[in-house]
């Protein structure tokens, strides 16, 4: 087995006496879709914020591609290829759909500080941006204002923007949350498609989604990892059943 692309050791975060993440050891294998599940308040989003350096850990280490990133600022982690999405859809509402994707692409042109140049210098990114939009089925809506898109489309746009960063590791925070049945299926297959050649770590509540695309699952409860493995191993784990159902012995109820 190859070295994990992302690894944490003893990661902990306390907020004034409350420990949200309590000594998490996590290893995300390169090329996997790794799902992070657990009941509400288990610390999944806090863990995401720690990994992407949006918040400071109280203790522990984070290694990305074998290098420690525990002391890097959030933007540096993003530039190294660990790119996150957010639980609530994060698009730039005042910009067009195309501009949203171009914004992720424009940094590599090195013109982002050029306030004296016309935005037309970004037109050479259009082709690449449209290809990305086409991948998520938004190419025909390129000129729409991103803020006016329906919810499911916003999530798709967010995915295209994240992909534009050409990430090594994508962290998706509840990509199907709040979606209708059809949108869930579309986004699920979308994640499967775009994960080719990349690693995905996703927080997900929808067990159907997890069962269909995740290679590995890690279950968090009260800030601790209580189980890890593939779907069948985890769904037979008694502690997981208890965490979800509060004590009863209904086997396999995590599904």
């Amino acid at each position: 087995m190859s070295a994990p692309v992302l690894e944490t050791r003893g990661l902990r975060k306390s907020f004034k006496g409350f420990t949200a993440v309590d000594g998490v050891d996590l290893a995300v294998q390169s090329g996997h879709i790794h799902a992070l599940i657990g009941p509400n308040g288990a610390g999944k989003t806090t863990l995401f914020n720690l990994l992407t350096r949006f918040i400071e850990p109280s203790a522990g280490e984070i290694h990305f591609n074998g290098e420690p990133v525990s002391n890097l600022p959030a933007k540096a982690v993003a530039r190294r290829g660990m790119v996150r999405s957010f639980q609530i859809s994060a698009v730039f509402g005042g910009l067009s759909v195309l501009d949203n994707v171009r914004l992720a692409l424009q940094r590599k042109l090195g013109v982002s500080f050029h306030f004296w140049r016309s935005a037309r210098v970004l037109d050479r990114l259009n082709e690449e941006a449209l290809t990305l939009l086409d991948q998520v089925g938004l190419a025909t809506l390129a000129d729409e204002a991103a803020g006016a898109l329906p919810y499911g489309r916003k999530r798709a746009l967010e995915l295209a923007t994240t992909l534009a960063m050409d990430p090594v590791l994508m962290l998706l925070d509840e990509p199907t949350q709040g979606m209708g049945y059809e949108d869930v299926e579309r986004v699920t297959s979308l994640i499967k498609t775009v994960s080719a050649g990349r690693t995905v770590l996703m927080v997900e509540h929808n067990m159907k989604v997890v069962a269909s695309i995740a290679d590995t699952l890690t279950v968090l409860q009260r800030g601790r990892v209580i189980a890890s493995g593939d779907y069948h191993q985890v769904s037979r784990n008694e502690e997981v059943t208890r965490a979800y159902l509060g004590g009863g012995r209904q086997g396999g109820a995590a599904a």
Partner: peptide
């Protein structure tokens, strides 16, 4: 010109959603 420059685009993004702009490396 500033408003309609690559820099202006980044400003708009930061105004709309600062954490997302950070996650894109800004």
């Amino acid at each position: 010109r500033v408003v309609y420059s690559p820099f202006g685009q980044a400003l708009q993004a930061i105004k709309d959603n600062e954490p997302r702009a950070v996650s894109l490396g800004y």
